[in-house]
Structure formats: structure tokens, C-alpha cells
Amino acid sequence: MKSLFITALALLMGTLAGCATTFHSSKSEMEARPETLYEVHLVDADSGTQLSMKALAQKLAHTDVIVIGEYHGHQAAHLLQSRIQAALHHQRPLQVLSMEQFNLDNQAAIDAYLDGKTGETEFIEDSNAWDNYRASYRPLVEFARQHGLPVVAANAPAAVVRCVGRTGPGYLNKLPANERAQLPGNAFMDTPAYRDKFSAAITSSHSAAGEAMSERMLNTYKAQLLRDNTMASRILSAHKEHPNAQIIHTTGTFHSEEHLGTVALLRQRAPDVSVAVISPVVWPADAEKAPVEKSRNKGDFLYFIQPLPQEFLDEDRERKAMSARFQRPNNETCQEDSP
């Protein structure tokens, strides 16, 4: 799976993500952990009140951009996204779907599929869709296709992100003019809180190492900022092109929780555009009730979910698997690699 998960300092980091799904009547408190990996407990972060899907949709009726964070591949997150998409469409039929899961250089492949010019397998191949597309994102794209709604490939081109991570932000200056023009101005706009969060996420999983590694980590962070700035720019372009439409953006939760990443950059670039963040929270194994108070800063709305099974218990196998998963293609070169 083309997960965008932060892995190792020597490997280009992608992103952390989120998930969940099944809805209950409004209650003041949640009574038990979600029973299945499809179920969520959906909560208003401000009041701590549990929400039904209808109540959530009503609260979001006049919001310009709804950002739904996910843990990539979690069944509950993807089911939740689909249900939110449909519920919001029922009350505001003008809607745009924006997705981190497609890169902007594959927009033509998405448009061809939506226009009925290609079949699904052709679309998946042409758009370089993630390996879990059919299981996780097909319902979102199909809903948009069936209702004639635009789908925006919001992420930066993967090859450009990798090369920024390897050689630094100056790589953008080496791109052909037409490729650079697709990327946002001020492509590495930043916020201090996001940088601190990124650094903490890296150092909590990997040991720090020397000045050279610090430079590599900085380049990796710049690659992360390129993703976030590109997504913010693509969302705002869609808002400008469809000013009366509501935009739903799906993304790994690291890009949006605590109103950081893409969300912070959206607000910097367009303060008048209203944004709501829906973030996943893993139900704690050691608590009878989910700690809304502890997690409410993660978003405007929270959805509590079961944790996914742990991938590895053997650290050596995990390290080898991560290296293989994120190894760059043998034929990939950045312009600075060329003689």
C-alpha cells in the first residue's frame, strides 16, 4: 500500500493518517468502546456531545471546507468519509471532493474516468491510485461520478516530493516551467507548531544522529510542507472555481489534526474561508470511556475508533519491511543526480 506514514530519517517520510464508522443518537457521553473496526463514536469536540450523522451534517451545512482526517487503511475512517460525503450532499448538492490520495499530475486520468472515457481498471492504472483504492476510496469517487461532482487530485507529484526530500527545496528551481507552475507559490510556507509536531513525531520513533542527518530531516520536512501547501492551494483553487460548492477533503490525519498542516496553511492563504476538521482518535485500551477532554484539540469533531492490529512485533522484520516499502525506484533520478 502506498501509505504516507513517517518511517525513518533515511527514508522520505509521508504522513500519518486516520479512520472510523457507525453512528448513534446524540448522547452526553459514550458508554462503551466501538464494537467493530467499522464503528465510530462521533463527538462534537467543543461540547463533548455524541452526534448522529444528521446532526453532524447540520452543523457543517454552511462550512466551506470540511477536512476529514484518516488513518490510512482503517475501515471505519473510509466508511465515515463516505457517509459524511452523502449526508452533506443531501443538504448541499453542489460539492467537490478533494483527495490527498491522488497527485495533481494525475488529474487528467481522474477527469477521463469521471467523463466516461475510461474504465475503472484503466483509471486505477492511469492515475497511479493507491493499492487500497478499491477497498477504501472507490465509494467516494463513485459517489462523485454518479452525481456529476468534480474530484480534485490535491497532492504534490510524488517524484517531486521525493526529490525535495533527497536534495532540498532548491529542487523546485530545476523543474521545467510548466511543472513548477502547477505547484503553489510559497511552496514551503510553514507554522512553528507544525514543525515542532513533525520533529516530535520523528524523534519519538527514531534516534537523532549528527548534523548530516539533521539536514536530511529538514529536507524531509520541506517535502512534507510541499504536500501541505499543494493541498491547501488545490483546495482553494477548487473553491475559487466552484464558489458555491462545499469542498470535502480527505487526508491523513497528521496533515489536519490540531488544525495544523494543510488546515493551518488554508487559513494563512485564505482567512475568510471557513474550515472544519474531523479527526480520528483511537479508543484507549485502558479507559472505560474515551477521553474527549484530552483529545478535543485534535479537531472540531472527533470520531473514536478501535486501534488497528499491530503490524510487527519483530523490530528487525519491521525495519526491513519499511526499507522495502519506501525504497525509491531504481530508475528514479533527481536532476542533481545527473552529470
Rank of each mutant, 00 (worst) to 15 (best):
M1A: 15
T63P: 00
S323I: 13
Q146A: 14
D44S: 07
P243Y: 08
K117A: 15
T251L: 10
A55S: 11
E70M: 11
T262A: 09
D46R: 11
D300H: 07
S28F: 07
Y38S: 13
V152Y: 01
Q146H: 13
A135D: 12
L42G: 01
H72E: 05
K27V: 09
H24M: 09
D314Q: 12
T253K: 06
N244V: 03
A208N: 12
R92H: 10
A201Q: 12
G210P: 02
M217I: 15
S279V: 02
R317L: 13
V275I: 11
T191H: 07
F254V: 02
D126T: 05
A285E: 15
I278N: 02
Q75T: 10
A10T: 13
L56F: 05
N330C: 03
G299S: 06
G165I: 06
Q58K: 15
M231L: 07
L225A: 04
F312S: 08
V273I: 15
V277C: 03
I6H: 09
H249Q: 10
W130G: 01
R33F: 04
L266F: 03
Q327I: 12
T118F: 03
F312R: 10
E257H: 07
A55C: 03
N331Q: 11
N178E: 11
F326D: 15
S199E: 00
S98L: 06
V152W: 01
N330G: 10
I247Y: 01
L236Q: 04
Q107N: 07
V164G: 02
N173C: 03
P280H: 08
A112K: 11
K54S: 15
A177C: 02
T36A: 15
S199G: 00
P284M: 10
I248W: 00
A321F: 14
S98G: 05
H242E: 11
A209L: 13
N219F: 08
S3F: 13
M30A: 14
S26V: 02
E35H: 12
V164Y: 02
L175T: 04
E318L: 14
R138T: 03
N219E: 08
H24F: 09
